[in-house]
Design a binder for these strands. Structure first.
Lengths: 113, 113
DNA sequence: ATTATATATCGCAATATTACGATAAATAAT
DNA sequence: ATTATTTATCGTAATATTGCGATATATAAT
């Protein structure tokens, strides 16, 4: 995160920003959307889905787990992941359903730059 | 973002992950929460609120603007910022109202590590 | 026991982020 | 015109993130 002054923020802001940060990478968001669609996955499912090495997928899954977004259950040699919180599922489908429609220059006529 | 393979994701995943990424820093989330509370701010308001230099606050405001989360309107020597999308406000208050309750180890008894 | 399968971790290189002071730019006030 | 005031940008150093191959670990199958 660069050189963030992590001690200067409230715990709730820190926790919530960690959740957003975890969702703020396209690979991890794609994993979450896969879970919204299919319910569960194992690491290999995502390896087949995204153009990343197995080690990289595993790292992304760990980060989602650390942020509390997914949880994993060991099942034989594999680990079955799912969304850890029903609220999160609701939030994400809500966000997806909304027309975010964010043009890169939202207000060129009234903004500084 | 390190070495992300940015060409391998759908535009919607990329856009949405950029929004999350922008919210994924405590200073920027604190700015957004300030805007939810007060409606508007100028750069100096946030400089008084957070323990960061003016240059750093300005950079964070630019990033929120680039992600389409806030917009700014020039007013004299200052720039008045506000949330750019009513939906976003709704999403954020929703998220804040939900008991996210994300323990760091959500499922130690069933997880790999 | 050996081999196959699945996931996690290590070590490294490339890149991105963060923060700061200094400075530029642009309007407002005297 | 000069001086404040406010925000944006530049340059730089410190740190974090990302991705990969290689390897470790752990269960399942033969």
């Amino acid at each position: 995160m660069g050189v963030t002054k992590i001690d200067s923020y409230s715990p709730s802001v820190l926790t919530l920003s960690e959740v957003f940060k975890a969702l703020g990478h396209p690979a991890r968001l794609a994993i979450v959307q896969y879970l919204i669609d299919k319910g569960t996955c194992i690491c290999g499912d995502i390896v087949d889905e995204l153009p990343l090495a197995q080690a990289s997928i595993s790292r992304h899954l760990q980060e989602l787990k650390n942020a509390g977004i997914i949880k994993g259950q060991i099942s034989g040699t594999s680990v079955c992941y799912c969304l850890s919180d029903a609220h999160l599922n609701a939030i994400l489908t809500l966000i997806n359903s909304i027309n975010l429609s964010i043009p890169k220059s939202c207000c060129d006529d009234e903004c500084t730059s």
